[in-house]
Design a protein around this nucleic acid. Sequence first.
DNA 1: CGCGATCTTGAACACGGTCAACTGACGTGG
DNA 2: CCACGTCAGTTGACCGTGTTCAAGATCGCG
Lengths: 237, 237
Amino acid sequence: MRQPATTDVAREQACTACALAPFCQATRAAPLPGAAVERGRMLAPGEVLFREGQPQAALYALRAGCLAASVADGCGGAHIVRFLLPGDVAGLDAHGGARHRSSARSVGASEVCELRAWHVDVLCAMRPALGAHLDACVARELDDAQRHAAALARLDATQRVARFLLRMARRGGGGAGGIALPMGRRELGEHLGLTMETTSRLLTGFKARGWIGLPPHGVVIRDAAALERAACQPHDP
Amino acid sequence: MRQPATTDVAREQACTACALAPFCQATRAAPLPGAAVERGRMLAPGEVLFREGQPQAALYALRAGCLAASVADGCGGAHIVRFLLPGDVAGLDAHGGARHRSSARSVGASEVCELRAWHVDVLCAMRPALGAHLDACVARELDDAQRHAAALARLDATQRVARFLLRMARRGGGGAGGIALPMGRRELGEHLGLTMETTSRLLTGFKARGWIGLPPHGVVIRDAAALERAACQPHDP
DNA sequence: CGCGATCTTGAACACGGTCAACTGACGTGG
DNA sequence: CCACGTCAGTTGACCGTGTTCAAGATCGCG
């Protein structure tokens, strides 16, 4: 739960559940033509993987660390649409088009595998199942985005933070005992539509009630049932 | 601008810009095998086209009227993710999966064309360009959803309403002079993350400043520049 | 040790929600 | 034809949540 767990163990865990596994030599029984996935590119903290409007160069599978996907709000600000954890794919926002519609930035240090865009096209043309797999990934992102919008529109701050923690836990954000929270309070707020201050207050509030623990750069969930309750009923003191 | 303009003229306008045109006999030079699109199914006001969790039966192209796409918020409420206008496609949320992840309800009376799901698969397998076309439609929906989330998270009520009006105008929600607003204030609020009252206040506020006119079931934009300004700078009296 | 960034905590304010009353359009039935 | 009911929209007064501004705590790092 310290800084990004870039051990070999963590990387291999990510690979078995990686969304690009069907494209990857390392995890396939039947080999694919050509060396599909280029592995192990490192990203420095804050480094930008791609930016809104840029032509799509590749798909990226996150092996270790954490990425933030964001879109500009047209008024000088940006909203973090989602956080990517090991095993997730970045760059699918350009699927069916040629240009990225969102940006991706590394939170802390990260490691990604690259699958060149032209390679994606070639492989999907040869194996229709691969194209369908990507379609399913995009559909899941669409569903995510719509549910996120629904949460922003209808839930109060407490519900949003509680849901976020439960979701991170369900996604296995760190496995043993605690969830890793590599992003700062400000970035958390930029994702949940809250200010840094409100986010901080709510987290310490949860901690004060014994629902969570707050080690540095992480969270441990102590009372999931209480969080589930808070995630649904509005206006709970 | 009265009730849904279900004239033949309006229908044909929708057809030329329809997102399912590549699948439709009526608009293609080169015919497709089989009668692909079944045209002209009528929907009563409030009628549900499909619901979250149901298996996907078809894609639907809206010919006339207006649909509301919504997702449940998990707490007994629902959020309207977007409004569909003539020429838009409904049902793409199940692309790459088998079940709908959102619901679609008719606002007022509507008319849709159906393209059976199995037919979509067959045609996409035969003509890869058709599959790519649908991918592009899904990508646009994803982008829409993410920008909508950004607006809900970072913009105040005035900015959201102003943007909504400009967007509707840009989408050609009714052509000559005025935009059709078939949905009620409540539904408008359910889309913008506001209450009926706030939505009403802001619209009448815009009208009082001469920025818009408010005929029944519609809006006319009188000062687009002022709305653009309001859409960006926050907290304007 | 001291500087800077991140996080926490406090107090006052304002935006938008809530509750409530009122208006006007429409449709039904006496 | 008007009385009546309903429903969508409008308007007003009040209040609460989350923001804003500001000060202090905590930690990492040179």
